Computed example of a mutant assay.
Amino acid sequence: MKRPTLSKKIDQLIYRNHKSATTNVIGCLVLHAIRSEIFERFQRAYVGMANKESSELGNLPTSPMAERARTCETTGERLRNRELAYGFDLDYKNDPPTLVPCTWSKNYAIGLYGRIGLQCYNLQNGTNLKFKRLEKHSTKRTGRYSSVYITLDATDPATGSVCSFQTQFSNAGSHLRLRARITWLTFAARIKQIPNEPIDDDWDEDTPGINEFYKVPLPKWFSDERGSKKYYVPESELHDNDWLQLLMEVAFFSKANRRLDAYLPLELNSVVVETLEDEPRDKLKADNAIFYISYKCCADPCSTPLAGDHRAVVRKTMDGKPGHMCLEVAFTKEQNKNEEE
């Protein structure tokens, strides 16, 4: 006579209990819970046996049980990783990759890099997202670039909504031939995507969109002799423009030799935009342009030698790819002297 299985025994017990005491609902629920617990334990034991069998056999052929367990684990990991972005969520400096922790730090430099990516997104998409706070970041050396993968919270003032934003910032260092004290690039500027999309981190030097005019050494200051169009930004547009404020901060960060730990009060005096582009009508949003910025550090002179008036030349270029932008800041007179010495 065939013995009933454990599952059938439990079903029979539930049935008898239900038939003899239909009002005893709690008893039925308890027995169902016991049955579920038994099968969960069996399932865990099944996977554990498969893993043990696989590890003990080493290079020997694995059994179907071990193979099925490994397939389930790999599939689950693959599904999870589709939602984890390279660099932003997973740090590949470690083997195996580790999760990038959320620190919610107030690091000024990382925040500045993140805001550059945010403004790149705004310029390319016609949006007005505002920086709210840093969430996390990781760093990696890729070729000649030092890259920072930044995740931050951004807000849309029109709706009050908050989104998770990702940007890959890369520091290409100084280029003496181009008179560039700093050369910064963004290779990604996007609202966080699930599933994760790969990043195109190849800057297109030969794109026809960047005229040779923007590939020569940075000028010391603007000149009427250069065959280009110049736009003198009216004072009414100077103080309520996130893009110009950011360019001023980038220039000041370069002036301070990238050694700022906190924001210092800055004030724009004047901005001249030089570009070859007829469109857009708003020259501040031209894909390729040179900005001549006069500004003042309003900090107490006793607290920092950087207090006072400054001038800066910043060149912005775009190779036409989404999320791609390059900012170059020219050496100041003092920095030029130090380099010559």
Score class of each variant (00 low, 15 high):
Arg258Ser: 09
Lys316Gln: 15
Glu274Thr: 04
His239Ser: 10
Arg311Trp: 01
Tyr214Trp: 07
Lys8Asp: 12
Met49Pro: 01
Trp221His: 11
His324Ser: 05
Lys106Glu: 13
Glu274Met: 08
His310Phe: 02
Ser170Cys: 15
Ala158Gly: 00
Leu31His: 02
Lys296Phe: 09
Asn269Cys: 00
Arg68Phe: 11
Glu67Ala: 13
Asp200Cys: 10
Ile150Ser: 01
Leu57Ala: 11
Thr22Trp: 12
Asp300Glu: 15
Tyr231Ile: 01
Gly76Met: 05
Gly117Ser: 11
Ala21Glu: 14
Asn257Val: 13
Thr75Val: 14
Val250Pro: 05
Asn196Ile: 02
Gly209Asp: 14
Arg259Lys: 08
Lys316Leu: 09
Val47Lys: 05
Arg3Gln: 14
Ala158Arg: 09
Ser164Thr: 15
Arg80Asp: 12
Val250Asn: 01
Val250Lys: 04
Thr186Cys: 10
Asn171Ile: 00
Gln193Asn: 11
Asn241Leu: 06
Asp202His: 08
Asp153Met: 11
Leu238Gln: 06
Val162Lys: 09
Ile293Glu: 02
Gly173Pro: 05
Tyr121Thr: 07
Trp221Leu: 03
Glu53Phe: 00
Asn81Glu: 13
Val313Pro: 06
Thr159Leu: 05
Arg315Cys: 10
Pro198Lys: 00
Lys52Met: 11
Ile10Trp: 05
Thr317Asp: 08
Asn211Gln: 09
Pro265Ala: 08
Leu218Met: 10
Leu129Glu: 01
Ile10Val: 11
Ala286Trp: 05
Glu237Val: 01
Gly117Val: 06
Thr71Phe: 15
Met248His: 01
Tyr295Lys: 01
Leu276Tyr: 06
